[in-house]
């Protein structure tokens, strides 16, 4: 008999949840690349203010924006992190669901590295070499012919490269890191062919198909979202290369080294300067309608944009975020703290 009382109690509680659906802590979703930075800020924010520590889910940039744009109200997240800028289709979705005022905050840069084990020699790559090594179809002639990628070893691509089998471990298509790698490295190399570059204006779909399609014959191995695993596999296999974010290279500099791309070694300075070609900006988006309702949003933005966080030498740079130049940081920081609707 007591048990049925318990059941009714629990069901009753469940029903009444709708009645007290209010929140006193910030909810954040979004990119797994921004997650390590956002969690640092959230923890600092929770420790140094009276507010509760925000709850952060790592859902990927696309998944985060989908949740974020689902509507206004306590059941929807307040902030979403993204490793790319919001797309116009996503802005439309937001507007359709009543999320009208959004503040975009660019927080800094992340570099994508192509690394191998420190036991072996550093690879000297270019974006074009990466494209030739990893694309499904590569140009066969100067005027628009394509052929399936024939390259087996790096030496086949360029005689100066070692005669090692092409074997690259990288993230799966759901990952923002993969998107950024394809756009920055593959497309960057692809564009070095004049006829493909011209194709961009005439046949954009074809252009994307050539530049963005990664080969599927085993040279590119999808290694899951766990970057620690890729580092371990690189240690075990000296011939393999791995693709991951700069922060992992920074943490594991005793095990792996970043390949030179277009003559630049991925270092903190090279990415901040913009001379390392495979880097991307990171963002978070704030739902302005929640700012007065959920306590602490303005203060969280303030903590994130403070110099001790995103500044040069701030704690986010310790975690691997590459800060923006002083002037840009100042301008963007003022805009963010005012929660200006800038999307």
């Amino acid at each position: 008999m007591k048990k049925s009382v318990v059941i009714f109690l629990v069901i009753g509680l469940a029903m009444s949840v709708t009645a007290f659906a209010q929140r006193d802590q910030i909810r954040i979703v979004g990119s797994s690349t921004v997650y390590p930075f956002a969690t640092k800020v959230a923890e600092q924010f929770g420790r140094s203010t009276q507010f509760k520590t925000p709850v952060i889910e790592s859902t990927g940039s696309g998944g985060g924006l989908k949740l974020f744009c689902a509507g206004v109200g306590v059941e929807h997240p307040d902030i979403t992190n993204a490793s790319r800028a919001i797309k116009s289709s996503e802005v439309e979705m937001c507007h359709k669901n009543g999320v009208k005022e959004i503040t975009e905050v660019k927080i800094g840069y992340d570099g994508i590295v192509v690394a191998n084990s420190i036991e072996t020699e550093r690879m000297d790559l270019t974006r074009r070499r990466l494209f030739l090594a990893l694309a499904k179809m590569i140009p066969a002639g100067p005027d628009g012919e394509l052929k399936p990628n024939p390259y087996e070893t790096w030496k086949d691509i360029d005689p100066s490269l070692p005669a090692k089998k092409i074997e690259v471990l990288g993230p799966p298509p759901t990952s923002g890191t993969r998107d950024a790698f394809v756009e920055l490295a593959m497309e960057g190399g692809c564009k070095t062919y004049d006829w493909i570059k011209k194709l961009k204006d005439t046949d954009k779909n074809k252009y994307k198909e050539i530049c963005h399609t990664i080969r599927e014959d085993g040279a590119y191995v999808e290694a899951g979202e766990n970057d620690n695993l890729i580092v371990q596999k690189l240690q075990a296999n000296e011939d393999a290369l791995g693709i991951f974010g700069f922060s992992f290279l920074d943490q594991n500099s005793d095990k792996v080294q970043g390949s030179r791309i277009d003559g630049e070694v991925p270092t903190f300075e090279a990415i901040a300067k913009g001379s390392y070609p495979v880097s991307r900006p990171l963002f978070f988006y704030v739902k302005d309608a929640h700012a007065g309702v959920i306590p602490g949003i303005a203060e969280y933005v303030k903590e994130f944009t403070s110099d001790r966080a995103w500044g040069d030498g701030g704690y986010l740079s310790d975690a691997g975020l590459i800060p923006m130049p002083d002037a840009e940081r100042k301008a963007l920081g003022d805009e963010a703290r005012a929660l200006k609707n800038n999307v």
């Binding site: 390590p36 969690t39 709850v55 790592s58 943490q251």
Partner: peptide, 29 residues
């Protein structure tokens, strides 16, 4: 599956569970 610092005080507070904590830490740098 989320980063949650505060220890939950009731069944309505955000919380993770042990295996999720393992999963989250396995992904940390």
């Amino acid at each position: 599956v989320a980063f949650i610092v505060d220890v939950p005080a009731s069944i309505f507070d955000p919380a993770t569970v042990l295996p999720v904590q393992v999963y989250l830490w396995a992904d940390s740098t």
